[in-house]
Design a protein around this nucleic acid. Structure first.
Length: 569
RNA sequence: UGGGGAGUUGUCUAAUGGUAGGACGGCAGACUCUGGAUCUGUUGGUCAAGGUUCGAAUCCUUGCUCCCCAGCCA
């Protein structure tokens, strides 16, 4: 485990260290939570949650769970009506709940605080710490200066408190058009921290808000809203990502200038980056809107909804979040670690089943014509408790095309002309004759013989059989569509080029439409997990119908042979 | 040329002045009715240079590199 673990296996990191220390020194005693830890997860409902959010969710909800009577609030940071939608709120709640976290009654919306926030803004004006500014957007930018040059004071900076109060009220009343003026904090136009150069607190936006409708035409900015929302809710530790480090002085400034009884501590950590994918909501939105994927829940997306549809389990995702740790340095986690956590979980719970993805017809010449045997197959060698099932065996079977080579390379121990292999749970078979298409030369059918004394896959003479193949009895097979997914991008860092979309993997989805699966899968339900023997983990996609089963490949099994073949080339 | 952060193996992450450890990946082997799983071994690291110290990843100095910030987005 890469994360620090205490003896009882509680996660540990620099944030938990700080909190533990704060609890020990009674830093949270006077706060509304009265000594208890209160964290929050504050998504903006302008997109779907992704695996990076899962890191934050596990952190915030995890800390609340680990501490006696700790709570974690779910707060929607909904201060920008033009980008936010109810659909996103619903999806976000579903995803958090699916991950197994419970915010209980603590579901809040920044928009619920608009009235209170307005009063705080008035208080700031009365204290001479905020003013209404009539500079337009471009002028504000020019007055702000640059990274290296200080800004200039706005000519509106010294309006009287009365005038500011009056103007601010008229802003609220809707007397001005969008962008006509803004409310700004009066801090320091020469600060090295641009966030402190009289940041905008309120802007005019005649837009319908998904919750408050047309009640407001001015909306508070993030910096003003977030610290005060935290304060109102009695948050003790406000955990956010690194890019907000520069905002902390402003967070603290606002709370210091106002009479509040709770001043939470903002702590920043590094957001998650994963190789072979992108994580910014803007870019994910671009993929969705540009039709590069089928939607937010496309199984190739790093969204929680996408991962869920792909077949990821919440246990795997939470285990992954435990493995990656929490620190302050920018990093890119290898997607192989996510896949490792997935396999580890699915290996223990997924029922084994046989599926032939690219069928090659096999006829057992010495097997009785109309006989069908029911053979016993274990459901999971990792968990005997999962029991066994019966699978039919008959004269005509299908095996995987890639499991036969007429001219085998060195080290190939699957089926070859004259060679013998074991059919899993069934019999040893020997390839006697290869039938090819006269035109193309392609192998279309194999004639084999079976050894009747090897029923179940054992031989009394102790004969060593190295290759074991999966197979399907033709008559009872069910046709299925199987969707094979690969990394969404061809480069570990798709963002290294100007247009990340140029690095999209053309083979991120391969649809196989003539696959065959065991008859027992007839009643498989969407979301069910299976291991297709020797292939990988698969789950039933919601696109499945009674007529056609559709499976998603969640993740492949480690393929040592493929690795050997590749390295030989 | 401003402000804020961060540098430990291929990747992520520990070590809080006292043996640089773990996980993933890679490699090798054992085992195996999944070339799966499991097990074992192995590889490889403190950004650099000075200094303090019996002892430095950790403290000090000087550099270097990378990330973030100039939305009326969050």
């Amino acid at each position: 485990m890469s994360t620090r673990q205490t003896p009882d296996s509680k996660p540990s990191d620099f944030i938990r260290d700080i909190i533990e220390q704060d609890l020990k020194t009674n830093k949270t005693t006077g706060l509304p939570g009265n000594g208890r830890v209160v964290t929050r997860f504050p998504p903006e409902p302008n997109g779907y949650l992704h695996i990076g959010h899962a890191k934050s969710i596990c952190l915030n909800f995890g800390i609340a769970e680990e501490n006696e009577k700790g709570t974690c609030h779910l707060r929607f940071d909904d201060t920008n009506p033009v980008k936010e939608e109810q659909e996103y709120i619903d999806a976000i709640k579903k995803d958090i709940a699916w991950l197994g976290f419970d915010w209980g009654k603590h579901e809040y919306y920044a928009s619920d605080y608009f009235e209170k926030l307005y009063e705080y803004a008035e208080e700031l004006i009365k204290n001479g710490r905020a003013y209404v500014c009539h500079l337009d957007m471009e002028e504000i930018r020019n007055y702000r200066g640059t990274l290296t040059k200080p800004g200039k004071d706005s000519p509106y900076r010294h309006r009287s408190i009365e005038e500011n109060l009056n103007l601010f009220e008229r802003m609220r009343l809707g007397e001005f058009k969008d962008g006509h003026c803004v409310l700004r904090a009066k801090i320091d136009m020469s600060s090295g921290n641009l966030n402190m150069r009289d940041p905008v607190l309120y802007r005019i936006l005649h837009a319908t808000h998904h919750r408050t409708g047309n009640k407001w035409c001015i909306y508070p900015m993030y910096d003003f809203t977030h610290c005060l929302s935290d304060s109102i809710e009695g948050i003790t530790h406000s955990i956010c990502t690194l890019e907000f480090e520069d905002h902390r002085p402003l967070y603290d400034w606002i709370l210091d200038e106002l009479k509040v009884d709770c001043h939470p501590q903002q702590i920043e950590f590094a957001r998650l980056n994963l190789s072979y994918t992108v994580m910014s909501k803007r870019k994910l939105l671009e993929l969705v809107e540009g039709g590069y994927v089928t939607g937010w829940d496309d199984p190739r997306m790093p969204t929680i909804a996408g991962l869920r549809r792909r077949g990821y389990t919440k246990e795997a995702i939470r285990d992954f979040c435990k493995h990656i740790g929490v620190a302050k340095s920018n990093s890119v986690v290898d997607i192989a670690l996510l896949e490792h956590c997935l396999r580890e979980d699915l290996n223990l719970r997924a029922q084994r089943v046989m599926a032939v993805l690219r069928p090659l017809r096999v006829i057992i010449d010495n097997y009785p014509e109309n006989q069908v045997e029911e053979l016993e197959a274990e459901n999971n060698p990792e968990d005997k408790g999962m029991g066994c099932r019966k699978i039919p065996f008959s004269k005509v079977l299908y095996i995987e095309q890639e499991d036969f080579r007429e001219d085998p390379p060195k080290g190939f121990f699957r089926l070859t002309p004259g060679g013998e292999v074991r059919l899993k749970h069934a019999y040893y078979i020997k390839c006697e004759r290869v039938v090819k298409d006269e035109q193309t030369g392609k192998v279309v059918e194999l004639h084999c013989t079976y050894d009747a004394n090897t029923r179940g896959g054992w031989s009394q003479d102790g004969r060593k059989i190295k290759g074991t193949l999966h197979w399907i009895s033709a008559a009872q097979a069910i046709k299925a569509e199987v969707r094979l997914y690969n990394h969404l991008f061809v480069k570990p860092n798709p963002e290294e080029d100007d247009d990340f979309k140029a690095n999209l993997n053309p083979n991120s989805l391969v649809k196989l439409t003539s696959c065959l699966v065991e008859p027992g899968l007839a009643n498989a339900l969407p979301g069910n997990h299976y291991q297709f023997l020797r292939h990988g983990y698969f789950c039933v996609d919601p696109d499945s119908t009674k007529e056609l089963l559709v499976f998603n490949r969640t993740v492949s099994l480690h393929d040592t042979w493929a690795k050997i073949e590749k390295s030989d080339k």
